[in-house]
Amino acid sequence: MKRLAALGWPALGVVTLVLLWVGAALYMGKPHVLPGPWAVAETMFSMRGPLVVAAAKSLSRVGVGWLAAAAVALPAGWAMGAVPALDRELRALLSLLRPIPPFVWLPLLLLWVGIGEPSSWMVCFVAALFPILAHARQGVAETPVALAAAAENLGATGLHLWARVRVPAALPLTFTGLKAGWSLAWMSVVAAELVGADGGLGQLILDSRNLARPDLAMSGMAVLGAVAAVTGGLLGWAERRVAE
C-alpha cells in the first residue's frame, strides 16, 4: 500500500501538469508559441535519432566532468574531515569559490582551453566539485569518535582504519554529495553547450529557438529531465546497494 501511495502522488503530479499544459495550449490557440503535449510527443518521435545523439553527447560531458570532480573531491574532502589543520587552511578559500555559479567560469574557460569539449568538461567539473567535497568532508568529520576509538583499540590503524571505519561511516553523506554534484553538473552542461560546444541538448535547444520550433525545444527539455531522473535513480540504487 505504501509503495502504491509513493507511486500515486508523483503520477498525480505529472497528470495534473499535463492537464494544465493542455488547457494552456488550447486557451492560447497558438501552437507556434505553446505547442500541446501531442505536438511535442510527435516531435520527440520524429526527431528521436537527433535527440538520442544529443542526449548521449550531453551525458558523456557530464560523466567526464563528474568523474573528474569525484576523483579530486573525495580524497580532498575526506582528508579535510580527518585533519582539522588542513580543513582550517582550505575552508576560507573554498568559501570564496563555492558561491560562484559554474557557468560564470565559462568566459575564462573559453580563453584558457578554447571552444569545444574541454570547456564543457570543466564547467561540469566545477559544478560537481564543491558539493562532493563538502559532503565528503562532513561525512568523515562526523564519524563518531567512539566508533573510531573502538576500531583503534581493536588494532585498526592507517589504511585499515580508513577502509573499515571512516569511509563506510562517511558513505551516506558522500553519496548525498555525489548525487548533488551530478544534478548540478547536469544543469550546468546546458549552459556550456549553449556557448562553447558542438552538439548536445543545450545546442539542440538553442537551434530550436533559431528555427522558431518551440516543440523541438520542449522535446529537448523533456529528454533532459528524463535522463536526469534516470541517472539520479541509478545513483540512488547504487547508494542502496552499497549500504547493504
Rank of each mutant, 00 (worst) to 15 (best):
E244R: 15
L51K: 05
L26K: 14
A149P: 01
V113Q: 08
T143H: 06
L147V: 12
V22H: 09
G139E: 08
L184S: 12
R240Y: 05
M218P: 01
M187V: 12
G200Y: 13
G77Q: 00
I132F: 03
L171C: 03
E152F: 00
G36F: 04
Y27R: 14
W105A: 14
A170P: 03
G114R: 08
G177D: 05
V140Y: 02
S58P: 12
V230G: 06
R213F: 04
V18Q: 09
D198C: 02
V195P: 10
M221F: 14
A54K: 07
W121K: 00
F175K: 01
A136W: 07
R213H: 05
K30N: 14
K57A: 15
W78E: 03
W162C: 01
T157N: 08
V62C: 12
P144F: 04
A85F: 13
G202K: 02
L59C: 13
G49Q: 12
N210P: 00
V52W: 14
A85M: 12
A222Q: 08
A56Y: 11
L234F: 12
P144R: 06
G114I: 10
L7T: 01
L171T: 03
F103D: 04
A170H: 02
G63L: 15
P118F: 00
D215W: 05
A85G: 11
L4E: 05
M1V: 04
G65L: 07
L147P: 02
I132A: 06
L110K: 07
M80H: 03
